[in-house]
Design a protein around this nucleic acid. Structure first.
Length: 460
RNA sequence: UCCCCAGUAGCUCAGUCGGCAGAGCAGGUGGCUGUUAACCACCGUGUCCGUGGUUCGAGUCCGCGCUGGGGAGCCA
């Protein structure tokens, strides 16, 4: 007999025939002549209540079922006379797969996120983390659905790269050389003897390769892991995280901002429609204001704010900031939070940044002072998307590379794309974990990724 | 990397002025009960993060270190 998922049972309109369910015991309560077992199999947030009668031949063993134990139950489905659930299972036979000893760290009470992080291998068995990771999965699917329905092509850009990609962050080196005894050339490691014949790193962004494919297939996106070895110790940074990077040919900054806004709105709406139960948990226990925030994101048009106007709003706010605001200064977290959380109280897209604070590939505007860059700032999370129209003019691009000290020789292939049929194009990057944080209200990035990698921490 | 805070039972935390180490939950035993964070009674639980110092005496005060958290920088 095939097992039925608990989700299927809980959602069914009428009682199914005899069912077989398998799962883990969340809690057990004994009554006079029977025992209530709350069983969860991860298919949904809710447990199913199993009634185990003392006539079952292994009832003495059943009474020893502790939180975390695994069982297989054959039983019949009945409307529950008790409060709190529609259906329950009257067990005909309970096969105990394994009884969990009492040192099982998860108890039927609330644990702190910090403690659960030390047992990342077990935390998906809790309500909150089960819900978070089901939402993560749903939103991954939503990303593919969004782009697929719009006719985008999914591109797998390389994980291992040979170029210090745009200096977007500190790099993890990939090597097969013996670090204790590397082959030397002029007293330095001889990378010609390394696996690829030159120094290699984990990718910090698939953008440059993504551009090459956009300039062939039109609209493309990447969705994969990204690695940065920055010594960042914050609730918003991880050394390994997932990023979505669409890239669109024949697309200018305005259209880029439109697609970023539509994209976020679609994802949030998708979560509201498809993660109702799991989302409810977060609205109830994690962030009481969550549904309001999400509704605002879906319904209100994002504010579009040129950088220079952002600067004057901040100057005129009369608020004292730790960092000075002036044209040419990068906006600090406190500035972004003020704009999104206090001033506008909704998502804001800031665009046309000074070129001095942005990378070489962003398109220089006619004023020659700013570039066609845009950041989407959302309340509580801060920057969730960073994007730009790309510099498609070869002379401007090579000029900017020289200015910012990027080697033309290393990027000959990137420059080729501006030499042969160059067209205007744009794209952006969305931090997937930050999206999950925004949608769930979870405040630490370590709690939205199954096994977080941060400085000094790579257990599991 | 910088600033701030914390580390005490399996978990969450209290511990006053430096003077015998505490509670709730979890666990065990018994009872009661179509229960649902079940309930009631009883029982056990310690490298007080490590290290050096001050002191008659340190969980408590001081130095150094480790780990965790919050904030900042860097960014997604």
């Amino acid at each position: 007999m095939k097992r039925t998922r608990i989700k299927t049972i809980l959602l069914s309109e009428k009682a199914l025939d005899t069912v077989l369910i398998k799962g883990w015991v969340r809690t057990r309560r004994d009554s006079k002549a029977f025992s209530f077992i709350e069983l969860n199999d991860g298919s949904c947030l809710n447990n199913i209540q199993v009634i185990a009668d003392d006539l079952l031949k292994n009832y003495e063993q059943i009474k020893k079922l502790s939180t975390g134990s695994s069982v297989c139950v054959k039983g019949t489905m009945h409307e529950s006379p008790g409060k709190g659930q529609k259906w329950e299972i009257h067990a005909i036979k309970i096969k105990i797969i394994q009884i969990t000893p009492d040192d099982f760290p998860l108890q039927k009470k609330r644990h702190t996120d910090e403690f659960l992080r030390t047992i990342s291998h077990l935390r998906p068995r809790t309500n909150k983390y089960g819900a978070a990771f089901r939402i993560r999965s749903k939103l991954s699917f939503a990303i593919h659905k969004y782009f697929h329905d719009l006719g985008f092509t999914y591109v797998h850009t390389p994980i291992i790269t040979g170029s210090d990609c745009e200096g977007a962050g500190e790099l993890f080196q990939v090597t097969t050389l013996d670090i204790n005894n590397p082959p030397l050339s002029d007293e330095k490691s001889d990378y010609q003897k390394d696996f690829f014949g030159k120094q290699a790193n984990l990718t910090v962004s698939g953008q440059l390769e993504g551009e090459l494919f956009a300039l062939a297939l039109g609209d493309i996106y990447t969705f994969g892991p990204t690695f940065r070895s920055e010594n960042s110790n914050t609730s918003r940074h991880a050394a390994e995280f997932w990023m979505v990077e669409p890239e669109m040919a024949f697309c200018n900054l305005d259209e880029d901002m439109d697609s970023a806004e539509n994209f976020i709105k679609f994802l949030v709406e998708f979560a509201i429609k498809n993660c109702d139960q799991d989302l409810e948990l977060f609205a109830k226990f994690v962030d009481k204001n969550l549904m309001n925030t999400l509704e605002t994101i879906v319904s209100k048009k994002f504010i579009r704010l040129p950088y220079t106007e952002a600067v004057s709003i901040l100057k005129q706010s009369g608020k004292k900031f730790n960092y000075d605001v002036f044209f040419g200064a990068d906006l600090q977290t406190e500035h972004e939070r003020f704009l999104a959380e206090k001033h506008f109280k909704q998502p804001v897209i800031i665009y046309d940044y000074p070129k001095t604070i942005k990378p070489f590939y962003m398109r220089v505007n006619d004023d020659e002072k700013t570039v066609a860059a845009m950041d989407v700032i959302v309340p509580r999370i801060g920057e969730i998307i960073g994007g730009s129209q790309r510099e498609e003019r070869l002379e401007f691009l090579t000029h900017r590379m020289a200015e910012t000290g990027i080697s033309k020789d290393d990027y000959w292939w990137y420059l080729d794309s501006r030499r042969y049929g160059s067209v205007e194009h744009s794209g952006f990057g969305l931090g997937f974990e930050r999206l999950i944080m925004m949608v769930t209200g979870i405040t630490n990035i370590r709690d939205v990724i199954p096994f977080p990698r941060t400085p000094g921490s790579i257990e599991f």
